[in-house]
Amino acid sequence: MIEEGTGFYAVPSSVKVVVLAAGNAGRKVLLGLNGRGEWELPGGWPDKQDVTLADTAAREVLEESGIVLDNDPVLVGAELFSPVPGRQVTLVCLATRLDIAETPTPSSEHKDVRWFGVDVLPANLPLVYRGFIDGAARQQARTR
C-alpha cells in the first residue's frame, strides 16, 4: 500500500505472541488454527486504545484464547511476512511465560486453539512462527 502523504510503501503491522507454559511432556506453546488452515501464534492488529505492544499482546491473547497474561512480554523479533501472495505484513513478536498451560477457549477468529509441545510443532505452521518460537525458547532458557 502506498501512503498518500509521503508516497512511501506502507506495510500494516501485527503483534504476535509466543505464549510458553510448562507441561507434562516439556514446554508448550499456544497456537490457533486460522481460516487458511495454518496454525499461527495468537495476536493481531493494534487497536486505538492500545498504548503499548504489550497492551496489544495481552488483549489479543485474551480475545483469541480466554487466557490472561499475568506478566509483561519481552521482544523476540520482527519479520516481514506474506500470509497470502501479494500481501505483506510486519510481524512484531513478543514472548511471555505462564506457570501452567491453562485450557484455552477458542474465539471466532480461529477454528481451534490449543497447546503444542515446542519440540512437536504441527507441519502446517509457517516458518516465520517456528523461528519466533525457537527464539523465545532460547531466550527463556537463558533467563532461567
Rank of each mutant, 00 (worst) to 15 (best):
F8A: 08
Y9C: 14
P12W: 05
P12I: 02
V15I: 15
L20N: 06
A22K: 11
G23W: 00
K28P: 05
V29Y: 08
L33V: 04
N34E: 10
R36A: 09
E38T: 14
E38G: 02
W39T: 01
W39L: 05
P42A: 07
W45F: 09
W45C: 05
Q49A: 09
D50E: 00
T52D: 03
T52A: 03
A54P: 02
D55G: 01
T56M: 00
T56Q: 02
A57D: 04
E60R: 11
E60T: 04
V61A: 08
L62N: 05
L62F: 09
E63S: 05
S65K: 03
G66I: 09
V68S: 12
L69P: 04
D72G: 01
D72E: 13
P73E: 10
V74K: 08
G77W: 06
G77V: 03
G77L: 07
E79G: 00
F81D: 06
V84F: 10
V84S: 10
G86E: 05
Q88N: 06
Q88H: 06
Q88T: 00
T90P: 00
T90V: 07
C93A: 14
L94Y: 10
L94W: 03
T96P: 00
L98M: 10
I100Y: 11
A101E: 04
P104S: 05
P104Y: 05
P106T: 07
P106K: 12
S108F: 13
H110D: 06
V118W: 12
D119N: 13
V120S: 15
A123D: 14
A123E: 14
N124E: 14
V128A: 14
G131Y: 08
G131K: 11
I133A: 10
D134R: 10
Q140H: 11
Q140A: 12
R142K: 15
T143A: 15
R144D: 11
R144S: 13
